[in-house]
Design a protein around this nucleic acid. Structure first.
Lengths: 252, 252
DNA sequence: CGCTGCATTGCGTATGATGCAACGGTTGGC
DNA sequence: GCCAACCGTTGCATCATACGCAATGCAGCG
C-alpha cells in the first residue's frame, strides 16, 4: 500500500489532535524534514491541513467540508437536530441518530448525556455500529424491505458479543418480527453487557424507514426499565422528525 | 508536491460526491487500475473511504470522525446546538456559531434560514471568516486580551472589501471600543456589501470570550434594522450558551 | 554580532509507486 | 450449461518519484 499516503494520513490525524510543527511532523513519521514538508504542503493545498500564524499545522477546513457534505447529504441531520436535543434535555439520556448508508448503520448525530459523564459512551458520530447487535440497527433492519434486509444480512458473519446477542439469523428474525409488532427496539446489552438502548424508527416522505433515534444509558445509571419509561418521548421525537421529513402519519 | 497524495485527495473528493468504482477511479486519475486500487486500499485502511457492498467506494467514517474531533474539541458546539436552533426558529434568520481556533475565526455551526433560500449564504461550517470584516470576528476581537489581539492583528494585511470595511488598525480599534461599550457587533456589509450581521459574544467559565453567535441576513430580506430588532433574542441566546459553559453572569 | 533553531530549496539517488500482463470471480446472454 | 465480457486482484520488472542530504534563508536571542 502507498507509503506516502499512509504518512499523509498519519499527519492529518496528528494535526487533528494537536498543532504540529514541521520538525515534530518529521519526527513523528521518522523521515527527513523536507519529506514532511512536501507532504504537509500537498495536504495544505487540499486544505486538509492549514498553517497557523505560528507556523504549526492543524486540521484544515477541507476535511470538515467533506464531512459536512457526506453527513448533510440528506436534510435529516438538520431537521433532527432540535428535536433530538429537546429529547435529551427532557430525559437526561444520551441520544443518538443513526442512518443506513450503504451497507452500514452510521451514527450521524449524538447528544451527550447531561449527567456528569461518569462513564463516557464510546460511540462517535461517523462510526459504524453493529447492524444486528444494536437497537438502532435492529429497528432499521426490522422495517427494511425483505430483499434489502436479506442482502445486508447475507454478508454478515454473526458474532456473539454477550449473553443476550442475537447471534444467528433465526433468532434475529424472530426478534425483528417482535420489533415490528411493538414499533420500537431494545438493546439489552447485546453488544456491550452494560450498555442499554431503546430505539425508534424514522421515516422519509415515502414512509420508508431510513434512520433511527435512540436513547442510551449505562446500566448503573438507568436500567432498561427506566429507559422504557421515557419511551413515549422517544417515539414522539422520532415521529416529529419523520413529519419534518415529509412523512404523513399513515402506517408505514 | 507529492503525486500520490494529490491523487488520494482527488479520490476522496470524488468518493464524497458519488460512489466510485475502481474502474471509474482509475479513469478519473488517468492511471492504471492497479494504481487506483492501491490508493483506495490505503485510504480504506485509514477508513477515509469505505467499500460498499456493491464494491464501490464512498467517503468513510475516518474523515467524519476527524471532523467531529476538530469541531467538538470543546463542548461548545454541543451546548450551543439547541439554543441556536431555537433562535433560528424564533427569528427566521440564518444563525452562525463561530470560534477562535488558532489564529482564525472558524464557523463551527450553522442553522439555515427557514426562508425559501432565495439566496444561499456562502458560509460553511469549517470555513474561516475574516477576523476584522465580520461581526463575529470583530466581537471576538473586541473582548480579547490586548496582547492576544495585537498578536492576531500583527499578521493581518488589511484589505478594503467594501465601502464600510474597517480597513486600517486605527478605525478598527475605534470600532472595537464601540463594540465593547454596547456589548454586541454589527457587520454592515463590511465584507460583502449585501450581507448584514449582528453578533454577540459567548464566554467560557472563566469569563473569557471564546466564540460568538450571529444572525445573518441578505439586505433584501432583512435590513440591518430588522436584524437589530431581534437583538435581545440573540443576546439572550449567547448568554444562555455562556451559562451552560459555566459562565457566572458577572461582567467579563 | 554570532549563535541556535527553524523552515525552505536544489539535487542526485534509490526506493517505492507504477504499468503490465496474467489470474480469478461473477454476471449475463445465447 | 457454456462461453464471453467485465471487473477486481496479484506478482513482477521498470523507472519515475518521493526521498535524504546538505546548503541556504530567516528569525529570535543572548
Amino acid at each position: 500500500m502507498s507509503q506516502s499516503i499512509r504518512r499523509a494520513v498519519d499527519l492529518i490525524r496528528r494535526a487533528a489532535e494537536y498543532p504540529l510543527s514541521l520538525t515534530e511532523a518529521a519526527e513523528v513519521l521518522g523521515v527527513h524534514k523536507s519529506t514532511a514538508l512536501r507532504i504537509l504542503q500537498t495536504l495544505e493545498s487540499a486544505r486538509f491541513v492549514r498553517r497557523t500564524g505560528a507556523g504549526t499545522y492543524v486540521l484544515g477546513s477541507g476535511i470538515i467540508e467533506l464531512s459536512e457534505l457526506a453527513l448533510g447529504a440528506m436534510d435529516l441531520r438538520q431537521f433532527a437536530a432540535a428535536p433530538l436535543r429537546a429529547l435529551q434535555r427532557e430525559t437526561g439520556h444520551t441520544v443518538h441518530l443513526a442512518q443506513l448508508t450503504g451497507d452500514e448503520i452510521i451514527y450521524i448525530d449524538k447528544v451527550d448525556s447531561s449527567a456528569f459523564d461518569a462513564v463516557k459512551l464510546p460511540s462517535r458520530v461517523g462510526r459504524a455500529v453493529s447492524i444486528y447487535a444494536s437497537a438502532v440497527g435492529k429497528v432499521i433492519l426490522a422495517y427494511l424491505p425483505t430483499a434489502e434486509r436479506d442482502r445486508l444480512l447475507s454478508h454478515v458473519v454473526f458474532e456473539r458479543f454477550t449473553d443476550t446477542t442475537y447471534a444467528d439469523r433465526e433468532s434475529l428474525d424472530a426478534e425483528l418480527d417482535h420489533i415490528r409488532e411493538q414499533g420500537w427496539a431494545v438493546d439489552n446489552g447485546e453488544h456491550d453487557a452494560y450498555v442499554m438502548c431503546v430505539a425508534a424508527p424514522i421515516r422519509d416522505s415515502r414512509g420508508r424507514v431510513i434512520a433511527a433515534a435512540s436513547m442510551t444509558a449505562i446500566e448503573v445509571i438507568a436500567s432498561l426499565d427506566e429507559l422504557k419509561s421515557s419511551l413515549p418521548l422517544l417515539l414522539d421525537t422520532a415521529n416529529q422528525i419523520s413529519r419534518e421529513l415529509g412523512h404523513t402519519a399513515d402506517k408505514g
